[in-house]
């Protein structure tokens, strides 16, 4: 039956965090070499790179752990 083939919510959470975190991290790496005109407080510690990486890692873990699961 169809209802037994639904992906769990954790799959979707993992996917969106992986995509968004990956985009933020890659953009942060780009800005490292091409600094923006807009300077923010603590920009020297590059929060976009490490926070994006944490987000992508968390999302990636959830995504790969649940990608074959159905509920």
């Amino acid at each position: 039956m169809l209802e037994h083939k639904m992906k769990p919510i954790w799959f979707f959470v993992g996917l969106i965090l992986l995509v968004m975190g990956g985009l933020i991290m890659l953009n942060g790496i780009y800005l490292l070499f091409n600094p923006s005109q807009r300077v923010t407080v603590l920009s020297e510690i590059h929060p976009d790179i490490w926070w994006g990486a944490i987000m992508a890692a968390f999302g990636g873990f959830m995504y790969f752990k649940t990608r074959k699961e159905t509920v």
């Binding site: 985009l23 800005l31 807009r38 923010t40 929060p47 926070w51």
Partner: peptide
């Protein structure tokens, strides 16, 4: 958000 977030993170905060 405007004080601390560079581009990319601003999009995340707004989202």
């Amino acid at each position: 958000i405007a004080r601390y977030y560079p581009s990319g993170l601003v999009g995340l905060g707004v989202t």
